[in-house]
């Protein structure tokens, strides 16, 4: 799914919610996942002017979950460790985006090359 402008955010969140409801995720986990997704989409719009999101339903023997992969061709992140620290922000925000997002999901993976773009992938289990 492509995200290019602010107005894409709400339909995108609804799509994520649809998927989460379909696999029977609990309300709290749904909210966490959608909030995390919303943070990442916002980052993508703000720093890279848009990008793509891949939505997958992951099934394992004991659990089902949703994986979202956010890919942009933005400026990239210089120091990932610094960006992951609470209270740090290069823009004018609270600096809770990335570390906060990490706390909301079960798995969080970020890769970034300066000048080429950033890929963030998050995974939330149904009962996690």
């Amino acid at each position: 799914m492509r995200i290019e402008k602010e107005q894409d955010v709400v339909p995108f969140r609804n799509r994520v919610k649809e998927y989460a409801v379909k696999i029977g995720m609990s309300l709290v986990n749904q909210t966490k996942l959608i909030t995390a997704a919303s943070e990442l989409v916002r980052n993508m719009l703000k720093y890279a002017g848009g990008g793509t999101v891949l939505m997958e339903v992951i099934s394992q023997t004991r659990d089902t979950g949703i994986r979202l992969t956010f890919q942009d061709k933005g400026p990239g992140i210089n120091d990932i460790a610094l960006a992951m620290k609470d209270g740090y922000s290069s823009g004018k925000s609270l600096g809770l985006g990335l570390p906060g997002t990490k706390r909301l999901v079960n798995e969080f993976d970020i890769k970034s090359i300066v000048g080429e773009g950033t890929t963030v992938s998050i995974l939330k289990w149904k009962n996690g």
Partner: peptide, 14 residues
């Protein structure tokens, strides 16, 4: 505020 929203905000650190 919805309970789920409150939990999420706290987890987020807000």
């Amino acid at each position: 505020m919805q309970p789920a929203v409150a939990i999420t905000l706290i987890e987020l650190g807000l």
